[in-house]
Design a protein around this nucleic acid. Sequence first.
RNA 1: GGCCCCAUCGUCUAGCGGUUAGGACACCGCCCUUUCACGGCGGUGACGGGGGUUCGAGUCCCCCUGGGGUCGCCA
Length: 460
Amino acid sequence: MVVTRFAPSPTGYLHIGGLRTALFNWLWARKNGGKFILRIEDTDLARNSQEATQAILEAFEWVGLDYDGEVAYQSKRFDIYKRYIQKLLDEGKAYYCYMTKEELDRLREEQMKRGERPRYDRRYRDFTGTPPEGIKPVVRIKAPLEGDIVFEDGIKGTITIKAEELDDFIIARSDGTPTYNFVVAIDDALMGVTDVIRGDDHLYNTPKQIIVYEALGLPLPRFYHVPMILNEQGKKLSKRDGAMDVMEYKRLGYLPEALLNFLVRLGWSHGDQEIFSLEEMRKLFDPKDINKSASAYNLSKLQWLNAHYIKNSPNERLVKLLEDFGVFLADHDRKEILLDALKERAKTIKELADMAKEILEAPKAYDPKALKKALKGEWREILRYFLAKLQEKEPHLPIDFHEVMEEVVKEKQISFGKIGQPLRVALLGRMSGPDLADVMAIIGKEETIRRVENLLKADV
RNA sequence: GGCCCCAUCGUCUAGCGGUUAGGACACCGCCCUUUCACGGCGGUGACGGGGGUUCGAGUCCCCCUGGGGUCGCCA
C-alpha cells in the first residue's frame, strides 16, 4: 500500500508551492488506492499558530483535497518522541551535549573566520566526565564519522552525501522538545509512510533523516524531491507574486480545478495534454514523470485555464460563485442568456461579475473614446427610428431584438455598425461587450428604451 | 565560500542516439463578427558555451558558464 503525507508547519497560510506538493502526494496516494495523511509539524513552540492550521485546512477544503483519518499534530505526540530519544540515549546512539548556545555561536564564528564550514565539533560525543553544572543539555544523534550516505531519489536519481558533511545534529532541544529532522523520520516511519514527496529544499534533510531511520532500525520510504516553483521573473517566490495565500486565488475569482490543473502542469506532464480533470490527474499521475528543474509560475496560463473551466461550468454553479462577488442572479429570469453570453469571455469569476454588473446596471458614464468613435452622422435619427420600432413590439428573446435591429438596417439602408455602435454606447457606455441582442433581451424592452433615451438626452 | 541539485522557444513542456526539434500559454497576422472576446486557420520563436564518445548527440561523458538549494536548540 502506498501511504503519502503532506506535512506543513503552521507558520503561515498555504501557498501554491505547498499546495502543489500536497496535490502530488494526494494524487499518488489516491491513484494507488492508498492513504494520504495530513500532519501538522508544530514542534516549534513559539512560531506556530492555530490560525495557520485553520488556513491550511480551509485551503484543502476549497480545492477539494481530502485526507485519511484525523489530522495529526506533532505537538500531541511529544511523549512518543521522548521514548525514542531515550531509546537512542540508552543504546549509545545519541548523547547529551552540554555546549551552550553561546559557545556554539563562538565556535561557528571561529570556523567561519578560518573559512571552514561551520559545524559542531562533536566534543561531547564520547564524553565520560562529569557534566558541567547548571547547564541543560541538548541531545545529539551520532552521525556516521566516515563513508557516504546514499539514497535513491525518485526524481533526482542517486544522491550521495559524504558523512563529513554532516554533524551530530540536535534531536532534542535543551528544554526537551524534539526537533524537526528527528520527528519527521519517526512519524513517517510510525505512520507507515511509503512515499515522501516534498520540496527539494528538503533534499539536504534527507540524509539526516536517514541517520534517524537507521539508528532506530526503521524501514526507509521512497523519496521524491520536487523542484521549486519560481515567480514570473524566474526568481524565488515572494508574497507579492505566487507565494500569496491559496485562498487569495479564490478571492481573485479563480476556480479550484483551474488552480489544480495549473499546478499539476508545473513540473509534471503527460505528453502534450494540458487539460486535466482531477480524475484524469489521478489516473495519470506518476512522480517519475516529475521534472528535475524548477519551473516559473506563469499567470496568463492560469488565466487561460480558468477561462476554460468557467466556459465549461454549468450556469447554476456560476450563479453561486457570483454571489461572493456581489452579483445575485438566482431569481433573475434572464440569467441563462446572461451567463451563456458572459462565460465565454471571462477569465475570472470576478471579471464575470464585473461584466454582469455592466449589463445589469445602466452606464453611469459614457466612455469618451466610444462617444467619439460611435456617435457619428445620423446616429440620433437612427436611434430614434430604432426606438419607434421597438415601441411597437413585444420582444423577449435575443432573436426578437435582433429582428428589430435588422429591420432598421434594412429600412434605413445602413450597415449594421451604424446602429450597433451607438446602441452599444447607449446600453453599455462602451465600444465593446457581448452581443447587443443578448444584452437587450437580458435587460428587457423598457430598460433598453430608457438607456437609449438617456443617451439621446445626454449632452454629447 | 564548501557541499548538493538543475539547464529545449519569453513561459510551461514533449523528446528518452537518427525528428523539417512537437504541443500549450503569451505575442503577431488572417477569418468569423455590429464591437470586444470566444472560436478557426497561419506565423515569429528554443536545444547556454566548449571539448569528447559515436557513422550519427537536444539526447551519453567531461569542463566552463549561468541559475537554485543548503550549511540553526526553524521547519
